[in-house]
Nucleic acid binder design. Structure first.
Lengths: 192, 192
DNA sequence: CCGTTTCATTGATTTAAATCAATGCTTTTT
DNA sequence: AAAAAGCATTGATTTAAATCAATGAAACGG
């Protein structure tokens, strides 16, 4: 338990055994069945979740009822509605499991106490969010500057596991396309 | 000099006069004329820039030579090619001034030393990047889920100063549209 | 101050994606 | 095992945006 979490943590910031023990007391394991919600829009986001096993998605639903996937999270990724988590405001996203999943949760109070009691946790947080920020900037750049075909190819080469494990219509949603359009793009790409 | 920088800093993390003095020694002022580059694609990004006065833009150029604006930075904003700054890899973005501007620069070595010598700088950094991350997530959500009209209205209400000070075709580029399309959207919106 | 560039707008046309609709296949559920 | 639900694909049609082209206005630089 928590193996993957600490593996990722120590890849960013080295920890002594004692620090690892200390941090562990702030963590809570949680299992989620496929289709189960971790968070629903309107509720306050109570935790940052680290994925030990499985896949989650974060998405919003528009007035027409269409889902728009903002993010997937596989093993080793963190997922949360950060704004809601940090401010206590109602969440604007849903988060649910696409497969049976195992999570490590960091609650709001745990987060605050970790920040004050474990300096390395702040460093971990800073580095993690920085990496996520850079990745998202790249994604945004590709959205506003690349043709869809190249965006799809980029996705498959950067995150082949996502493309494999997630239904295609959700990939389409993540890319801001309809399932039909993505299907046709794939056909065009494979016939070349 | 540095007034706005410390105003923004202390809004996130309170500082004593001594700490402020100490941090100041790591900062460098820089002026940029309109159209001047702060960074060119391929160069290594040597600094994080805080805008004391003026407007900058960060953009990439595709094979066809089209510019795609990723971000604007007005007074009080930070701008940089973070990936290049942190890794020393060549930058994938250009950054230049849209008006005569005054900046506060934090060099790579200054950044590292501040992180180790001034704990509050790490907190400032973490909070800043977290805010930027949340803002970008919102932008991404609106791109994949809202019709362009609403995206433009959202932009004008959230950042009226950007829409006022920046040429319209650059707003179009920021939105991933052609200038003609944005012009027509504006007409549709104004005629209602 | 005048010529040049930059910029926004508008129209006509082409191109790309969304929508509507139907089908067959696979996976769940009962 | 059978029924239902979820999913990917394909075709026909509509809709939205890009492209091409031209014009007038504003800003800018020498």
């Amino acid at each position: 338990m928590y193996e993957l979490f600490f593996e990722h943590f120590t890849k960013k910031v080295a920890l002594t055994k004692e620090e690892e023990q200390q941090i562990q007391t702030y963590l809570t394991p949680k299992k989620l069945r496929k289709k189960q919600y971790l968070l629903q829009e309107g509720d306050v986001c109570k935790a940052i979740a680290f994925v030990e096993k499985g896949v989650l998605r974060q998405y919003s639903v528009d007035e027409a009822g269409n889902e728009h996937i903002l993010q997937f999270a596989l093993e080793g990724w963190l997922i949360s509605d950060l704004y809601s988590f940090l401010t206590g405001e109602p969440a604007s996203y849903h988060i649910d499991a696409l497969e049976d999943s195992e999570l490590v949760l960091i609650s709001q109070t745990a987060h605050e106490q970790l920040l004050t009691n474990v300096p390395k946790y702040e460093t971990f947080t800073r580095l993690t969010i920085t990496g996520a920020y850079i990745a998202m900037q790249r994604r945004l750049t590709s959205i506003i500057s690349l043709p869809v075909e190249e965006r799809y190819m980029g996705l498959t080469s950067l995150y082949p596991d996502i493309v494999q494990r997630v239904p295609q219509h959700m990939i389409a949603s993540y890319m801001g396309l309809t399932p039909e359009t993505l299907s046709r793009i794939r056909r065009r790409l494979s016939s070349q």
